[in-house]
Design a binder for these strands. Structure first.
Lengths: 407, 407
DNA sequence: GAACGTTTTGTGTAAATCCACAAATAGAAT
DNA sequence: ATTCTATTTGTGGATTTACACAAAACGTTC
């Protein structure tokens, strides 16, 4: 075995990257397990767009990560200690390169990338890269320790926010600065409910995903039994609520796609500026989850506290309806008619209302001709003595229909 | 003065009617103050459709009464003790005739009608008719006294119903029969709130109107301070609620038109079969009135408990919204935008929702082009992050808009 | 099986909606 | 005054609605 150039100690990861670059005659990039840039070689100025974007953004761009997952590159790196060759993917500006993962026992700490510009690495050089990966291990462990300590501080701070332990806005902002996070001017809290207690592996998966999804920015996150709680900055977003919603759906989709974790129930709060309202926001997300538990079908596609809509009021409505015990006359009449004549007027009405009074859509949903639906609606308004152009009446019917389901 | 044939005493009003008929050589009809048939001559079989209908129905048909009011005939009869000539009104089958009112002091007790078929009454015969009217006075006073006693029994029974003094359905039905009213299988309670304490004159006006409006049937009525309370039978009506509503509006319109009594606030209950529920119905009508007091503009056109719609729930909603103190994010954003840019997005949204999402109507109401409204709606959904096709979101906005008005 | 009422589907038309695009207007910032 | 942006209004065209009327299908009753 020839002399190993990486045995020598080195001051910084940058220095080490340059050294590897010189030995292999190609640009080198070192990332942590979450694809954040740790170091890159500078002596060689040949590069490709993906690498430039990585260096500029201090992280691998999300679309590049997505592509590498789809191509199976990252799964392979997570499974094998040997270098892997990645072929050019033009759409994302990724040139030919070789990658190797950095291991500590059974855990991947990071990756080394070597760009194959103008030359291709031979077997010996691949082996050399593998040894380089081994040599960075200790350095990465140190980094991780430092990060873990910081992570603990984050955790503590987040729980202080969630329990309103910090009462003044100023105090909170100072703490943010102390942790070197710029405090958001607009934020939301999201909670994801898993089907089982979250273990160390899940935590890593989650952390990985949160780090690689680049927008919106997850400033803080923590895990509480079966729940993942996120503190999300929405600064600079045009439509914060929509953004938040899109993120939550994306997160759930990726968890399933990448790690096969299913049945995650999601809920997120209103959007706030006032940092004192973190606890309120946290409770709102909890409310969403609890309503989803009660009304799994109806609230299936509702994730945000904003969009809870009438369900926000449903408990008091149920209570009120219970004490007054007044049935809706129109519904009663329709139900009687349905029973007597074997028709589906009540169901028709409900679908029609669910579809926002759109005859076309409702007819499709019911698998009937639009004229049929129109005929039924005419009958409904006759029998139930309903004016289907009066929003107040329609809303009442909508509410009473929903209420009836949960009696 | 020549000998007065009406001085002689007579057994019954029928006998008297025949006598007058023979003297004047024309058919005679005698009515009470509420246009109920008291007697009619039978010796002369010439007649007209209006008279036939009156005799068949034991009362003057409603449309004939309406016509006589419009023509000013009834007002004149109520003002003057002299006979009045009425010209043919073909549409309602009314031939030429002469009428005179029957007086006791300053009060009209009834009317005598003489049909002018093939002949016209001369001055002397007109005078004769006037004397005939005077001669019926005592007979009518007796009738009235008997009726007053019955009226008192009705009053007592009605209040027993209103206060749930009678607890079993059977007991109530027996009482109905005892008072010679056939118990309704479907009924409602209506309450009319006047602006002042109701005096004897008002009572008479009301009684008159109730007796002359023929459908639906007012089985019982009573007056309580500023309120008129009605027990209305809805038997045999296809659309009881709509019928009830139409009646209430008609009553208020007629009170204004005929007696100049304005600002009546109306409220009516749900429709019930169970006679034990009269008190509940009475309370419902009261609830409508109290909500109209709180929301005079919004609930202006709502009279029925059924159609209260969301206002039925508004108190608990206000309470809930108060304790939670969560503003609607979308509305907040829109309000901010309105303030900043001097626009009317919130108002636009409200009108749009009030008009049941009908672009055309809403645009008219706002006095803008439909395209303008469409543009605004697009902006509204962008700025408020609202999906205007989601009924749940729209309902929430509607509710929150209404709630905001009463904070 | 004939007669009946109710429901469903098809046809046609005037009106309304949705959309994109262009022009005119108004207000604010520079 | 000019530029810029947001708003309002106009035009046109494909789609959808509302409504009326006719024909077909279905279930019930006799």
């Amino acid at each position: 075995m020839k002399n190993d150039p990486f045995r020598a100690s080195f001051e910084s990861l940058e220095e080490f990257a340059d050294m590897v670059s010189e030995v292999l005659h190609c640009p080198i990039t070192i990332e942590d397990a979450n694809h954040r840039l740790l170091a890159y070689s500078t002596h060689d100025d040949r590069t490709d767009p993906a690498r430039i974007a990585t260096i500029i953004g201090r992280r691998v761009p999300e679309k590049v990560i997505n592509s590498l997952w789809k191509e199976g590159v990252i799964p392979s790196l997570l499974n094998s200690r040997d270098p892997i060759r990645v072929k050019t993917v033009d759409e994302i500006g990724l040139g030919n390169r070789v990658a190797v993962s950095i291991w500590k026992n059974d855990e991947v700490l990071g990756f080394i990338w070597a760009l194959e510009i103008e030359k291709t690495l031979g077997e010996e050089e691949m082996d050399c890269l593998k040894r380089a990966a081994d040599a960075t291990k200790n350095k990465l462990i140190q980094l991780q320790n430092r990060k873990n300590k910081k992570e603990e501080q984050f955790q503590e701070f987040f729980w202080q926010l969630l329990t309103s332990h910090l009462s003044s806005n100023e105090e909170i902002i100072n703490k943010f600065h102390a942790l070197q996070i710029s405090p958001p001017t607009l934020f939301g809290i999201a909670v994801f409910q898993f089907t089982k207690e979250l273990g160390r592996d899940d935590e890593k998966h989650i952390a990985y995903l949160l780090k690689t999804i680049q927008l919106p920015k997850i400033l803080l996150h923590t895990i509480d039994h079966q729940q993942l709680i996120l503190f999300i900055s929405l600064d600079g977003t045009q439509q914060p609520v929509n953004k938040l919603n899109a993120f939550c759906e994306l997160f759930v989709a990726k968890m399933k796609e990448r790690f096969g974790i299913e049945s995650i129930v999601q809920g997120y709060s209103s959007v706030y500026c006032d940092l004192v309202k973190v606890e309120k926001a946290y409770k709102e997300a909890g409310t969403v989850l609890s309503i989803k538990r009660k009304f799994p079908i109806e609230a299936k596609d509702i994730h945000g506290y904003q969009s809870l809509g009438i369900y926000k009021y449903i408990d008091v409505l149920i209570e009120k309806a219970g004490t007054d015990q007044n049935e809706n006359y129109s519904l009663k009449r329709l139900q009687e008619y349905d029973k007597k004549n074997n028709t589906d007027l009540v169901e028709t009405l409900e679908v029609f209302l669910n579809k926002d009074s759109n005859v076309h859509e409702a007819a499709c949903a019911l698998n009937v001709h639009t004229n049929t639906l129109n005929y039924r609606l005419k009958r409904i308004s006759e029998i139930g003595e309903i004016n289907l152009k009066d929003p107040n009446q329609k809303i009442t019917l909508y509410l009473d229909l929903k209420l009836e389901k949960f009696k």
